[in-house]
Structures are given as C-alpha cells and as structure tokens.
Write a protein that binds this DNA or RNA. Structure first.
Length: 581
DNA sequence: GCCGTTTTCGGCCCGACTGTTTTCAGTCG
C-alpha cells in the first residue's frame, strides 16, 4: 500500500471530530478523551507519522492521551489515510463539522438537531435555512438563536476566527488602559491566551477588581470599538469589537483576584489539572479561591494558590499542560529568560536593502530601547527584489559602520554596531556571499528564502550544509513559516538540532509576530539538546524593535533560560562563543 | 476512552450566562 503522508493537523482534526460525533451520541467522557488526544497531537513538534516510522506502535502510545483505542485509529490513519470508525460516524451525520462548529454558540448537540430536522450539512445550508426563518421554528430555538447563527456566519466569513497576537495587541492594550483609567477600577489585567503569549488568540479575557461593577460594565459595553454586546451581567460581560474580536470582562472581588486570574489565564487543561490536584488534597478550586469545605485556603494571589497546592509558581507562558505541573511539584522548573534580559539584536535590516531606516537611525532607536548593540544584517544579492548586497556593496557598508561606530565612540556612547549579513542559502546549501567576505563579518546569519517546496530530505541537507560552514553563525527563521499565511517548509528539525549541537550553530527565535520561528516546541527541543538560540526582532524599521518582546515570550513558552539565549549574554562572551564554532 | 500517591476499576473541573423555558439544556472558557 502506498504510504500516506497524513499531517498532524489532519490527524488532530479527525480525532477532534470523532469527539464531537461522540458528544452528539450523548457519550459522557469519550469526547473529552478524543479532544485531549487531538490537542496532544497539535502540541507535538514532530510529525506523528515520523514518530510512528521510528518507533512504531510503542512510540505512538507514549503520546499523552493515546491509549489502545486511539493509537489503533491513528495507526490506521497513517497506514491507509482513512479511519473506518470516523467514517462510520460521519455517515450517520454527514455534516461539515469544522465549518459548523466554528459558528459561535453552535455546539455538537444543535448541529445534530439541525441536520436531523432541517438536513443542514454545511455553512451555506445553515445560512440558507437561517435566512429563510426555518431555524426559529424548531423547538428549543427561537428568534435570537437564529439571529446569533447569522451573525456567527457573518463573522466567520470576514475573519477566520483567530487573530495573530502581535497584530491585535495594540488595540487590546488600548482597551485595557481605558478601563484602568476608570476610578471604579481598582486593579485590571488581561488574562487568557494573551497573558500566556500564544501566537494567535481566539478572544480576549480581561479581569478586574471593582466595588462598582455595574459602572465598569456599562463603560465596557459602550466603548466606541464595540460592534455588539453578547452578554452583560454584574460579574461577566462579553462584547465583539468591530474588528471581529470577542472580548470578555470579568469583575471579581479582591479576595478572589489570584484565583480568578489563574482561572481565566488558563490554559483550560492546566486549570483542569490544578483542580484535580486540589481535589486529591481535599480542596476545591474555582475562580473564587481554593477552599476546604467552605473555608477559604487561598485566592488573593496566584502564588499562594500554587503554594497551597504544593507547587512552585508557574509562569503564564508555561501553562500549556506540557509537563509544567510535574516540574512545579518537584520544584524543578527552570528560571526563564526575563523580559529585560536581551542585550542586543542580531537581525536588523536597513535602507541598504528592504529596511526603511538608515544604519544610524536603527542604532539610535535600539539604544533608546536600552539595547547595547545591534548587528546589521541586510539581504544578499540573490534576493534581488530587496536590492540584496553583493560583495562590493557589503564592503562599502562595513566601512560605513566603522564610521558610525567611531562617531559613537567620540560622543562617549558605549553602543556598538556589529557587521553582519542575512545571507541567502542557495539551492545546494552553498551561500550567496563568498567565504572571503563572510570571514570579515562579526555575525553571519543565513536564511532560506527560496525553493520552499524541496523534499524534506533535500531541504534538510541544504540547511545542514550551510551549518557545516565554519563561517556560519546563525540560521535565521529556521522553518520559514508565516503564521496563518504560509506553512513551514518540510524540514527534519530533529536532524537540524542535532547538527546545531555538533557544529555550535545558533538557531534563531525570530520575534516578528507573524513568524515566531522557531516555534515553542522547537525551542524546548533546543533547550533539552543544549543548542543555543538568539532572540531577534528582524526589524525593518525603528518601530520593529518592539517585536523583541514577542520573541522573548516565545522563548519563555519554550522554557528557555538566560543561558540558552546568546544575546542575553554579555557581548564579549557571545562573540567568543561564535568565534569558537 | 484514558488513567493511576484513590492504580487495572471507577472516576473524570466548575460556574456564568443565554435563550427558551417554568426548571433547564446548551455553550463557553
């Protein structure tokens, strides 16, 4: 039989849909089991088919949430591309679950009823029935339900449902600040996936302390950005913004603030695990606190809750149910890289190629953000559309950098501009600049900007070859993905990490909000393998240095400590490390 | 269907709000 090339995304989708079908059947716990397995697959850095290829059934069973039954079904999917169990379920209720359950407010139970009573199978048919006024006549549905469905469809059409964090963060911060400015608000924090710095978010959860919640809620639902109000109560309100993003606001008492912050920060699975631990200790944990019977044990701060549960405090970026609970119980959590730890930026573009600002402008902007140095890494000639540098122009740029540095020294500024490149990797893994030039640079970064469709083997070999070049220091944005726009190219990251360790090559955590490349699971693999990384803004203008924060957050999501990130080290130590490659 | 300091059977997180209902199911996080 032809071997199938099913991806993790496809496997997760099928597992999740099996869960939804089982929910329609009224099963109580199986749906959650399938959902958990789907989440585990999505969190994997490695393709499930590769795990199976290497370790067969045994290796699959080691995936969290995979028992006998799910392992069997996933094996079938890998081998044949089909799962008979899934297809049987699908035959009974042949609907496009992905489409329909993306409609807000519409769950499995109602999807089933809409199919059985109106024959609705997909978004288009749902819209048609809703517009024809057929849904409101069903028992249990009504005018409002029908309206909500239509609005849900409208939203899906324009947004796709999730937002890239870095693109919506300014608006979120703006709303949070307006709320903080109210005299009725004593304390306020953005929780949820925003606080965990997930790369994309589905909605925003804001938490506040106030003794006049009604005034806060009234202000919140009448913000000018509000497109509609879903719910307005004393403790909880929910709105949709004009850009399509949902925002929830919860108001709690001071005594519950820590418990609520913990609860609304999630992740959901992390919270479930905490509650289970609470139960085992004879407590009950909810958003109001940790209780023994009716007696409150903890709740004002998150720290006291973790402590009462016998654990160390867990940073929000780690709360993804990827082993953090066990480490916290054993008091073995790493001390994460901090937001103030980055001393310099190793990838900066200027107006010599596709950047907006001059070398000097970029340097001054970096300085004003508290950085001690930047590396100028303009593109090379193969990237013709950016005006990439050839040997002659990069030599000229190096002279220019010397001149600016001299000017800084004269003024008594300690800031340094280093010479570098973002050199294109050619098809065969050779480079777009000669070794003679590369030798003269302080930092050599290399990037794949072409031939994204090479086979996994060719792409991996291509990048490996550059890493074996002693002049190459860093692989920039190692997987090439653009969040929500372009998938990563096929590359064997296990192998890349192995070679990085062997050759002392740095792998970049590109902080640009649409890249965040390496992704969190790959960072964790590097940390475990002892491979060093850098956090770079990839700035193309002076405002882009602000991206570093997203890169630091990403590093923290991958459990990186200061010693894992070379541009968190003193400059001389970093340069020595690169020299000794 | 998974899982194990409650361990191979019997549990599995908990509460707010809505909409359509006279007491609750569905959805969400």
């Amino acid at each position: 039989m032809a071997s199938s090339v099913i991806t993790n995304e496809e496997i997760a989708k099928i597992l999740r849909e099996i869960g939804e079908y089982l929910e329609m059947e009224g099963e109580a716990f199986k749906p959650r089991a399938y959902e958990k397995a789907a989440e585990a697959v999505e969190a994997l850095a490695e393709e499930v088919r590769e795990i199976y290829k290497k370790g067969s059934l045994k290796a699959l069973e080691n995936i969290p949430g995979f028992g006998v039954s799910i392992t069997e079904k996933v094996e079938e999917l890998i081998k044949t591309g089909h799962c008979r169990y899934y297809e049987q379920l699908k035959k009974k209720i042949p609907v496009n679950l992905g489409e329909l359950s993306a409609v807000g407010g519409l769950g499995s139970k109602n999807i089933k009823r809409l199919y059985q009573e109106l024959g609705i199978r997909n978004l288009k048919e749902l819209e048609k029935s809703a517009r024809a006024g057929k849904i409101k006549n069903l028992e249990g549905f009504g005018e409002k339900s029908e309206e909500n469905i239509l609005r849900g469809i409208e939203f899906l059409k324009q947004s796709g449902g999730r937002f890239v964090l870095g693109l919506v963060m300014p608006e979120i911060n703006g709303i949070a600040q307006q709320l903080r400015n109210l005299k009725e608000v004593k304390k306020l924090e953005v929780a949820g996936s925003v606080r965990r710095w997930k790369e994309t978010i589905g909605d925003v959860d804001i938490l506040a302390v106030s003794n006049k919640p009604k005034a806060v809620m009234d202000f919140f639902v009448s913000l000018p950005q509000v497109a509609r109000v879903f719910a307005q109560g004393e403790t909880k309100s929910a709105i949709k913004l004009k850009n399509g993003m949902d925002v929830d606001l919860r108001v709690v008492s001071e005594n519950s603030y820590g418990a609520a912050l913990n609860y609304f920060t999630g992740s959901k699975d992390h919270n479930v695990a905490l509650r289970e631990i609470a139960i085992k200790k004879g407590y009950k944990l909810n958003e109001y606190g940790l209780f023994k019977g009716k007696k409150p044990i903890a709740g004002r701060t998150e720290k006291e809750i973790y402590k009462a549960l016998g654990m160390d405090y867990i940073e929000p970026e780690m709360r993804e149910m990827v082993g953090e609970i066990g480490f916290a119980q054993k008091h073995q959590l790493p001390k994460l890289l901090d937001y103030g730890d980055i001393k310099g930026d190793l990838q900066v573009q200027t107006n010599w190629t596709d950047g907006v600002n001059s070398i000097e402008e970029m340097a001054i902007a970096a300085m004003s953000r508290g950085l001690e140095y930047i590396v100028i890494t303009d593109h090379t000639k193969r990237l013709a559309m950016t005006g990439g540098l050839d040997e002659k122009r990069i030599l000229k740029q190096m002279a220019e950098i010397d001149k600016i540095n001299l000017g800084f020294r004269v003024k008594g500024l300690g800031f340094r501009i280093l010479k570098g490149t973002e050199c294109d990797i050619l098809k065969d893994g050779s480079l777009d600049l000669s070794d003679k030039i590369l030798e003269k640079l302080d930092v050599v970064g290399v990037s794949v900007h072409s031939l994204f469709n090479l086979s996994r083997k060719e792409q991996t070999e291509r990048i490996k070859r550059t890493m074996n070049n002693p002049n190459v220091d860093i692989v920039f944005h190692p997987t090439g993905r653009l969040i929500q726009r372009r998938a990563a190219y096929e590359v064997d990251m296990d192998e890349i990490i192995k070679i990085a360790k062997k050759t002392g090559t740095i792998l970049e955590i590109n902080a640009s909000p649409e890249r965040l490349d390496l992704r969190d699971q790959h960072i964790r693999m590097c940390v475990e393998a002892g491979v060093k990384m850098s956090v770079d803004s990839d700035a193309h203008s002076i405002s882009h240095f602000g991206f570093l924060e997203y890169g630091i957050a990403q590093a923290r999501r991958g459990w990186a400590a200061r010693e894992d990130i070379i541009n968190a080290w003193p400059l001389e130590k970093m340069l020595n490390f690169l020299k000794n490659k």
